[in-house]
Design a protein around this nucleic acid. Structure first.
Length: 464
RNA sequence: GGCGCGGUACCCAAGUGGCUAAGGGAGAGGUCUGCAAAACCUCGAUUCGUCGGUUCGAGUCCGACCCGCGCCUCCA
């Protein structure tokens, strides 16, 4: 049984998908006005962990992630550069896909773009007008939240208090009530617009997720994810629109991940603690180490990014990598030990049970590390046979279907001159010329290679 | 003001009523090794922000307080 913390109920709930064996998942994707920062990727990596775990658990997952390619920021930036919306956003859409790949995010089944679903949104807005949930004002259309009594349930916001604490909206559009939100925005001078039956204009932000989610997954879906900051007003508004229009529940499980902070503070450009993935890659950070770092803290807990914490995650991941390397390269006696089977079964079961408990990654990783220590211990006592090693490796790679932190399987081949140096050093060691041997080792270390002398000969690995 | 999250060893971080408080990093000692690396073994919180309370029993429940943070406005 899987349990998730549902924001809607504020408690852990048993997960039951609408259809047996199948999960419909919608995740709020990027607004493509700039390069995403690592906080954005925390959310996407959490969603990736969720999805990979559901697949691991045996579910078929239908995943939709939207691309918001029209909003205030994209319009403004494109206008400033004199580019069309498409020209401007193309670059960032491409960057997002590139980043997703290096961070090993499983691709969604569909990446719908807002600009390609205007008719769906218009249809929904018209329906809301007809049903009386929305009204025209000055060429724009707004959703009237007082027509939807359940408004505020997700965010646990009380409308009376909202009104009391209301601030002046910076939006230039006129609304009947400050908290009503725009479904359709009237075209403004010099801005892109669509000529529709609602008049010239563009969609509001919230309507896109409602329309596209329904388009690909149906009016009721299993899971909808996003960052904690999307709860209000974005997701609250989505619920209002969708449920007012379709008259049925929009989402069964709302899962939100907490923020990433940097050195204990919110990331912001003015503080200079704002990192994109590209910034970190330039500093020589291995993206998979970053993935592991972002992955290894529970998704509902605030995560503090520091280079020290990233280094700890790197070292932790390295332990797993060393373990796999050892098993792959050591020469072992033929045969197998039935006890190893018990160890692998237990590791897999504990890992699975841990993650089934609202993605308790800490407990899951603890199961993996305990398994590693036990196998290492047996390895040092020469109790691991060839077939055991194969079984252990298969188990680790099974777990890695969820984590996706193991290196690509292809072995790197060193250039001939490096191999010659290693050979030369071996010769020097044999002749007990340790000064030369150490000099060569140091030279290769400078080049990023660590040599390890084992009973079975020399081996090397890359310094991270 | 309203809503919410967190405070567990040097650092990161599980644990939500009951055996000796997971796991990782860093560190110390040892084994192995020419040395190193990796690995293994050993050590490491009489204690869980503070103070009260409930209970046979609390990190875990209740109350108060202190500290840090987020949201209520675009934001993963």
């Amino acid at each position: 049984m899987i349990r998730f913390f549902n924001t809607l109920s504020g408690s852990l709930e048993e997960f039951r998908p609408l259809r047996e064996g199948e999960v419909r998942l919608y995740t709020c994707g990027p607004t493509v006005y700039d390069y995403p920062h690592i906080g954005n990727y925390r959310a996407y990596i959490f969603e990736d962990l969720l999805k990979r775990f559901l697949v691991f658990y045996g579910y078929k997952v239908i995943h939709v992630m939207n691309l918001t390619d029209v909003d205030d920021k994209t319009i403004k930036a494109a206008g400033r550069l004199g580019l069309s919306l498409q020209e401007y956003t193309a670059k960032y859409i491409q960057a997002f896909f590139e980043d997703s790949k290096v961070l090993r995010l499983l691709p969604a089944d569909v990446y719908p773009r807002a600009t390609e679903h205007i008719p769906d949104m218009v249809r929904m807005v018209r329906g809301l007008l007809e049903k009386g949930f929305a009204y025209f004002k000055d060429g724009s259309v707004y959703f009237s939240i007082e027509k939807f009594p359940a408004y505020g349930r997700l965010a646990k916001i009380n409308l009376e208090e909202l009104k009391a604490g209301a601030r002046v909206d910076s939006d230039e559009y006129e609304k009947e009530s400050v908290h009503d939100f725009a479904l359709w925005k009237k075209a403004k001078e010099g801005e892109p617009f669509w000529e529709t039956e609602l008049g010239p204009g563009r969609p509001g932000w919230h309507i896109e997720c409602s329309a596209m989610s329904t388009r690909y997954l149906g009016p009721t879906i299993d899971i909808h994810c996003g960052g904690i900051d999307n709860i209000f007003p974005h997701h609250e508004n989505e619920i209002a629109q969708s449920e007012a229009y379709y008259g049925q529940k929009f989402v069964n499980y709302w899962l939100h991940c907490h923020h990433l902070v940097v050195e204990g503070e919110k990331m912001s450009k003015s503080r200079g603690n704002f990192y994109t993935l590209r910034d970190l890659l330039e500093r020589g950070v291995d993206p998979v180490d970053l993935r592991f770092f972002l992955l290894s803290t529970h998704y509902r807990k605030m995560l503090n990014f520091t280079f020290d914490n990233l280094e700890q995650a790197r070292a932790s991941r390295q332990r797993i990598l060393d373990f796999v390397y050892e098993l792959e390269h050591r020469t072992l006696a033929a045969g197998s030990d039935p006890e190893v089977r018990q160890l692998t079964d237990r590791a897999l079961l504990e890992f699975k049970d841990s993650l089934a408990d609202d993605l308790n990654i800490s407990a899951g990783l603890a199961a993996l590390f305990e398994f590693i220590r036990e196998v290492n211990s047996r390895l040092s006592r020469e109790l691991i046979k060839k077939d055991d090693a194969i079984l252990v490796l298969r188990t680790v790679s099974e777990i890695d279907r969820v984590l996706a932190i193991l290196p690509e399987s292809k072995e790197e081949v060193l250039p001939a001159e490096i191999l010659a140096k290693i050979e030369l050093r071996q010769k020097a060691r044999k002749e007990k010329n340790f000064a030369l041997a150490d000099a060569i080792r140091e030279e290769l270390r400078q080049m990023g290679l660590i040599l390890e002398d084992t009973k079975e000969g020399v081996r090397w690995k890359r310094i991270k």
